[in-house]
């Protein structure tokens, strides 16, 4: 691509829309961040944010887009993390190999987890998927000699030699994952996922092979959750059965609801806000942190039911009723088709 094309694209598609400017500036800031900040614990927090962003967005795909209630998302994350850890420590495989393999194993886990979804719906499916990580904890206990049992696996190889190096790898993988997930949700596949979410019977009556698309959604979601899990294992260098805990399954749900579901970007915003908040609360409040954290969540859910993203969109942009182009909020006319924009943001 020529430089001229890029500047043209920026001028036409990025700069007229406030939220895109925010994303652009935010991304640039993230790229520049390690240059001005080299405190290891801050970099560590940022890397965790990147990893969990992928994890949260993968939950958004399966549950908020496809409507399959998954309450045991830690399954995919943990399966991949354990696969990476075992392959690395027992067979000396390099992280470059283990992470893709871990993600593939997570896809297989997604297919297995997807089978109940062919028969079950809503909270019943949720309960089934919630049980799956618990089953795996038992398996890990049983196969103590390979998995280390309760102690977990230690001494996993770092993916990168320095923390800054890891920072850039994680950032790149996050950006690529989010871009791919957004591309999927805006494609025909994404449309079919949403149709299945809204009414599965009607989707089938429209000629959609719902079995195929549900399993596809499960495996795609598993793929990205698995990628996050592999990165996590090779970053923490220690993993234990705690990756299958309920809290690990519920975090992505909290992030998604906080940031705004069915948007892919929403969960990422959720992680970017909530993870530092949790960190800060723990430093300053100690044991009271959890209380304040959940208080914040309740307030956000009550006053911004669509999540933070919806709130930001509401006050920064308007969608043209004619051509669906996104416009900056102060505009009176659409920037593409010059249609009149309403004064209030119509829902």
């Amino acid at each position: 691509m020529r430089i001229g094309n890029i500047t043209d694209y920026l001028k036409k598609e990025i700069f007229p829309v406030p939220t895109r400017v925010m994303a652009f500036v935010g991304l640039a800031a993230l790229v520049a961040f390690p240059l001005i900040m080299d405190q290891p614990h801050i970099l560590r927090l940022m890397i965790m944010i990147f990893i969990f962003s992928i994890f949260a967005a993968s939950w958004d795909l399966i549950s908020a887009y496809t409507g399959q209630v998954v309450l045991g998302h830690a399954l995919f994350f943990g399966v991949s993390a354990y696969t990476c850890a075992m392959l690395n420590t027992h067979f000396n495989m390099s992280p470059v190999m283990t992470i893709p393999i871990g993600a593939v194993v997570a896809v297989a886990a997604g297919l297995i987890a997807g089978f109940p979804a062919l028969r079950l719906k809503g909270i019943y499916l949720g309960l089934t998927t919630m049980a799956m990580p618990v089953v795996l904890v038992a398996v890990i206990e049983y196969m103590r000699s390979y998995t280390g049992g309760e102690q977990g696996i230690i001494g996993i190889e770092q993916l990168a030699t320095s923390r800054v190096h890891f920072y850039y790898i994680a950032l790149l993988l996050m950006v690529v994952s989010i871009a791919v997930l957004m591309k999927i949700t805006r494609s025909k596949i994404g449309l079919i996922f949403q149709a299945i979410r809204d009414d599965e019977i009607a989707a089938r009556a429209s000629g959609v092979n719902t079995t195929y698309y549900k399993l596809l959604s499960f495996s795609l979601s598993g793929l990205f959750a698995g990628l996050a899990g592999g990165l996590y294992a090779h970053f923490m260098r220690v993993i234990g059965p705690s990756v299958f805990e309920f809290s690990f399954s519920f975090e992505p749900i909290i992030w998604t609801i906080f940031g705004g579901g069915a948007s892919i970007v929403g969960p990422v915003i959720g992680v970017f806000i909530l993870l530092p908040v949790v960190e800060m609360l723990h430093v300053h409040l100690g044991d009271n942190a959890t209380l304040i954290y959940y208080l914040i969540l309740v307030i956000v859910v009550v006053f911004a039911p669509g999540g933070v993203l919806r709130l930001i969109n509401r006050y920064t942009e308007k969608v043209c009723p004619e051509c669906m182009t996104v416009n900056a909020f102060p505009r009176r006319q659409c920037r593409v088709c010059s249609a009149k924009l309403s004064a209030v943001n119509g829902e």
């Binding site: 449309l191 079919i192 949403q194 149709a195 009607a202």
Partner: peptide, 24 residues
């Protein structure tokens, strides 16, 4: 269907596009 079953959270055009994307 006797009781209409639209894809509620999608606009009308997307409702009609769903069968178009998968049709023979």
């Amino acid at each position: 269907f006797q009781c209409t079953r639209p894809f509620r959270r999608l606009p009308v055009i997307a409702n009609v596009m769903v069968p178009c994307t998968v049709r023979r």
